[in-house]
Design a protein around this nucleic acid. Structure first.
Lengths: 238, 238
DNA sequence: GGGCGCAAACTGCGATCGCAGATCAACGAT
DNA sequence: ATCGTTGATCTGCGATCGCAGTTTGCGCCC
């Protein structure tokens, strides 16, 4: 509980708190959920995280409350907070909405994309390709999220982006749980390549098709391994 | 609605607080925003609302923080909290997403609707018709929100419903600000009648068309009066 | 040695206090 | 009478404390 590290975590040259503490914590956990740092069923505690971050329980609490309200976390019957475990019905609904919204964002991105945007997406695609070739799971998951995010950001519709990110927030841990193998990454990279080409060609329908294909094929693998949350049972002295 | 009893509002036989205080406050303000009880630019204060409700500032704060994060409220430069004032660009984006998601919900509602659902929607439609005929603005706005909500609820997709409700949350005050007149209500009721018939006939395409027509025609009137927030400017001495 | 029980240590939630920054009102000077 | 300045009071945000309920783990009893 060092009071000196409250205002500035050990981030080196970080100047000051640009946002409120709860917002920084929210963003941190948000990114962790999207990029696969958390597993379904994993228990989180307000005070525990507060102690890790060197802050009081209050901002952590508000951040986790928001994530709970957004469906990323859930409160168990014993008032414990954990990463939400999706049912197949939950997952199918999320996938259907993702197809709709991400397809919409892709169409608009193809119309609105600028050259700087395109360069950024190309860079993200290169990183994703590298991660896929090396079958580096963690790196692949983070790069995959960043690649999709880069495309949707080019659509220049902040609300649509935030709604898509909210969906990723919920499926992130499930994706992590399905631990994509080489086969999965290879087929998915086919869609990613198509998506990049369609974006560069300003081909709205093509970009939508590539995105929808990516989502729906990936969903099959994720859904199959949905009922295997390896974090929930803690038999003894975990 | 005096909050003389903190733990138990005057809900009669309500046993205890079914939800947390912050959730109750969130729901309360949420409904107020959707059904048009708040105007764009209207200032809200944590401590003020806490005093009105007879609770401490804490649960109010968390509720309003969530609404701010969801884009319903905004923090001014002077750290004052107010109902968000939409720009035309904001509004166009919201409308486009609404067309997409509410059309999707309508299609699925037409496929999933049960007889009890249909009865409920019929009742809501009757109430809406009454309010429109009497040109009772407040009643019409609340009934309109309830009618749409009833249809989307029949789709049996809770996440989709919550995302639609989040959009209504943001446009609610703007709709209120446009004070629909008799002409607006009359044309809108045409689409509402079509929607009810399509739902009863399980006509997915027809229901989507009615919903999209309703949204897009209403959007024209709302957008036109968007730049007239009568609450923002306070020239001198209130 | 094995099963039971109670207390300590967790959990989230609400209340209260204090801080830094901004607004506003009232007072004093010109 | 008008302008400038200052203090009281507002704002949101974080820390700390306390409450009620649940889980857990150590010690006691059989």
């Amino acid at each position: 509980m060092q009071g000196d590290s409250v205002t500035g975590p050990a981030t080196g040259a970080a100047p000051l708190k640009r946002d409120s503490l709860q917002q920084q914590i929210y963003d941190r956990v948000f990114d962790g959920l999207v990029s696969g740092s958390y597993l379904p069923g994993q228990v989180l505690s307000t005070r525990g995280m507060a102690q890790e971050l060197g802050v009081s329980a209050m901002p952590v609490r508000e951040a986790l409350t928001r994530l709970t309200a957004e469906g990323a976390l859930e409160l168990t019957s014993s008032r414990t907070l954990r990463v939400r475990v999706l049912t197949p019905e939950d997952f199918d609904e999320i996938t259907a909405i993702r197809v709709n919204l991400e397809g919409m964002a892709g169409e608009r991105a193809a119309q609105q994309v600028t050259e700087p945007d395109l360069d950024r997406v190309r860079t993200l695609h290169a990183e994703l390709t590298t991660a896929a070739q090396g079958v580096e799971t963690d790196r692949y998951l983070a790069a995959n999220a960043a690649f999709h995010d880069g495309i949707y950001r080019a659509a220049q519709w902040p609300l649509l982006l935030s709604m898509i990110r909210r969906l990723w927030l919920t499926v992130g841990p499930a994706i992590r749980n399905s631990v994509p193998d080489h086969q999965h990454m290879a087929t998915s990279m086919g869609y990613h390549d198509d998506a990049l080409q369609a974006l560069a060609a300003r081909n709205a329908a093509g970009l939508r098709a590539a995105i929808v294909g990516d989502i729906e094929t990936a969903a099959q693998g994720i859904r199959a391994r949905l009922a295997e949350p390896p974090e929930t049972p803690r038999p003894r002295t975990g």
